[in-house]
């Protein structure tokens, strides 16, 4: 044949190429490709795990944020309640103080009234006594001058 083309040698080359293709596929191509696929799968799993952990962390963060927001509200409410209680207590104390003051004033007024009445009664009694004595003396004709002197003496004693 032209160019020394030989069908038998071509077939031998085919056989050689078939052996090479099969051998290289089994010895090199497939094992390396399998390893690359395995590594890709490994890193894909790692990526998924990382994404899952990130999502979980975000969920926990959101949960704690919600709790934190709740705590703020709770603190706000507690503060409002405390202020209300203080206000109530102050008002109670004030009312009590006012009541006590009113009672003290009333008591003082009562005491003053009683004192005034007692003094008045004693003055009236003294006046009646004096009037009785004067009447008695007038009735028994006593010298008015002596009587006056006697009364004056008695008055000084009384003042002392």
């Amino acid at each position: 044949m032209p160019l020394n083309i030989d069908l038998q040698q071509i077939l031998l080359h085919w056989m050689n190429l078939a052996i090479l293709t099969g051998g290289l596929y089994l010895l090199l191509y497939k094992p390396v490709k399998d390893f690359m696929t395995k590594r890709e799968e490994h890193y894909r799993q790692l990526d998924e795990q990382a994404a899952e952990k990130l999502a979980q962390a975000e969920r926990v963060q959101a949960e704690y944020q919600a709790r934190l927001d709740g705590a703020d509200e709770e603190i706000h409410q507690a503060r409002a309640r405390a202020q209300q209680a203080i206000q109530q207590s102050t008002e109670d104390q004030l009312a009590k103080a006012r009541e006590q003051a009113r009672q003290i004033v009333a008591h003082a007024q009562t005491e003053a009234e009683h004192s005034r009445e007692r003094v008045l009664r004693e003055s009236q009694r003294e006046l009646r006594k004096l009037a009785a004595q004067a009447t008695k003396k007038l009735a028994f004709h006593v010298d008015p001058f002596d009587q006056f002197l006697d009364l004056a003496e008695e008055g000084e004693e009384y003042e002392e």
Binding site: N4, I5, Q9, I10, L11, H13, W14, N16, L17
Partner: peptide
């Protein structure tokens, strides 16, 4: 040439 023909035809 036989090797080249073999590879080309294969």
């Amino acid at each position: 040439v036989n090797a080249a023909i073999a590879l080309g035809t294969l």
